[in-house]
Design a protein around this nucleic acid. Structure first.
Lengths: 151, 151
DNA sequence: AAATATCGGACTGTGCCAGTCCGAATTCGA
DNA sequence: TCGAATTCGGACTGGCACAGTCCGATATTT
């Protein structure tokens, strides 16, 4: 259904919570889980994955935890989704060329590729800062790319 | 993975084949299956679903089959996807509000709604005619909405 | 040394997807 | 009027990815 998996959705919520803290300090999985009202094992798993992909920095030990690897303005939705569930692509052939037997004769492939690029671009325009802010007061109201396209 | 299901992908390919025939005549499932090199039961199932959603007209009997309910220019990708796999929405709460326990306190919801709208709009701009045409000669080259946004 | 974290992976159940199949209803042609 | 071809509507099944849990090892702070 062109839907991201629930875990990925959670992951982005977690990122927005981390951005919301404002400090650069590490926060541990338990704290973030409580903040987001999500089960702690799930949160652990997601934070692990995000750190592995370079969006978070991990800090071991007693006062350890996770902190954003970059400023919220420098992290976008496309990155997060890619980190959480692999390359963005509506169709199989966009992500894994060559696995579809009828690629050569497929007339629909090129249009889909363009559509994919548009979706990807739309997601790349949205920063974590935009996601973390309350709806009515975005960080960069003038440059928020979605405002003009939505009714 | 923000991916449409394989069946939906097939469904759109089938629609583009039907558009490619050019005539308004009904074509049966076996013929279309052969055209698209897909198993016939799958094709049957998909055509059934598309007809049920009003995108195709079905004709029973010996010379029966399926034909487009509207002209290819009047059918867009968002419709086809919606018909094949339900409402377009990246997150659960966009499609089924009220099922997520933390909707009230979720800061990310509103931004996601805007992103959804952008994705949906992008898909609505692409007509079946655009999909069915060979890549380099779209029906409406000047109004094809994707051209400007892609590198 | 003890406590607290992450790290890395294995593990399991559930649900949806992909695909098949069948009987009934409908239409066309002879 | 009969038979053939086709859609229609639904049930059914196997497989696989997702969702979520758990544990031992490692690192860091006190």
């Amino acid at each position: 259904m062109i839907r991201l998996s629930r875990l990925s959705d959670y992951g982005i919520v977690l990122m927005s919570h981390l951005a919301g803290f404002g400090d650069g300090e590490p926060h541990n999985a338990r704290e973030i889980a409580a903040e987001a009202s999500l089960p702690q094992p799930v949160v652990s798993k997601l934070l692990k994955a995000l750190a592995r992909q370079g969006l978070l920095e991990s800090h071991r030990g007693t006062k350890g935890g996770y902190s954003l690897a970059r400023r919220p303005e420098e992290i976008n939705a496309a990155e997060m989704i890619t980190a959480l569930e692999g390359p963005i692509g509506l169709t199989e052939c966009t992500v894994h060329p060559g696995e579809c037997a009828q690629e050569a004769s497929c007339h629909v492939r090129e249009p889909w590729r363009r559509i994919n690029d548009v979706v990807r671009a739309a997601l790349a325009e949205v920063s974590l800062a935009d996601l973390a802010q309350p709806p009515r007061t975005p960080t960069h109201p003038d440059t928020l790319p979605l405002a003009g396209n939505v009714g």
